[in-house]
């Protein structure tokens, strides 16, 4: 009886050890996959909802992990523009809203930096955005409708001044030439 107990205990310990060891072996470098979905946000002006779900290979959720979102942009070479970061909850899920700057095809990256034994992971995804923030507009110059027309008015004034000067000079000269023939004068 004692020998059975002893071997059971030994076997149990062995199993437990192996299982434990196996667990430790399994716990190192746990691969994590990120599953990202994009959907239009609740309110149109919020843009899109980016949802991410972190799972291990056997489907267990990875919680309390930071996921950073980036958008791939071309600004002096290809760069990743930081959007925001979220923290996964008990189900390994997190979401945020994102209003892109422009419509069109957007390349995004979701990057999780891992935690403890969970590996970093990265997921690239693309979606076609049809909702975007208002494009940049230059502030209109105040009074522009008035100042655009003003030069014409002032130009007219300048031209009439020149005309007057010309008239004063030429008109007087002509009047004097013509008046020569008028011989009547007061002695």
């Amino acid at each position: 009886m004692l020998r059975l107990l002893g071997s059971a205990l030994a076997l149990g310990t062995l199993i437990a050890l192996t299982a434990g060891l196996g667990n430790v072996a399994l716990a190192d470098h746990v691969r994590v996959t990120a599953n990202v979905t994009v959907a239009p946000a609740e309110k149109a002006e919020q843009g899109y909802t980016l949802s991410v779900r972190l799972r291990t290979a056997d489907g267990k959720p990875v919680n309390e992990t930071t996921v950073r979102f980036y958008q791939v942009v071309d600004l002096f070479g290809e760069r990743e523009m930081y959007i925001t970061s979220v923290l996964t909850d008990g189900q390994g899920s997190a979401s945020t809203t994102y209003l892109p700057a422009a419509t069109g095809r957007l390349d995004l990256v979701a990057r999780s930096s891992g935690r403890d034994h969970f590996l970093d992971t990265e997921e690239r995804f693309t979606f076609e955005a049809s909702v975007a923030a208002a494009p940049y507009r230059l502030a209109p110059v105040p009074l522009a409708p008035f100042t655009d027309r003003l030069p014409y008015g002032v130009g007219a004034v300048v031209l009439s001044v020149w005309a007057l000067i010309a008239f004063a000079l030429v008109g007087t000269a002509l009047g004097i030439r013509r008046g020569r023939r008028d011989q009547r004068h007061i002695a």
């Binding site: 522009a144 100042t147 655009d148 030069p151 002032v154 130009g155 300048v158």
Partner: peptide, 11 residues
């Protein structure tokens, strides 16, 4: 022509 402050070169 003499003018007054025109809007800057429009953008």
């Amino acid at each position: 022509l003499a003018g007054t402050g025109l809007a800057p070169i429009a953008f």
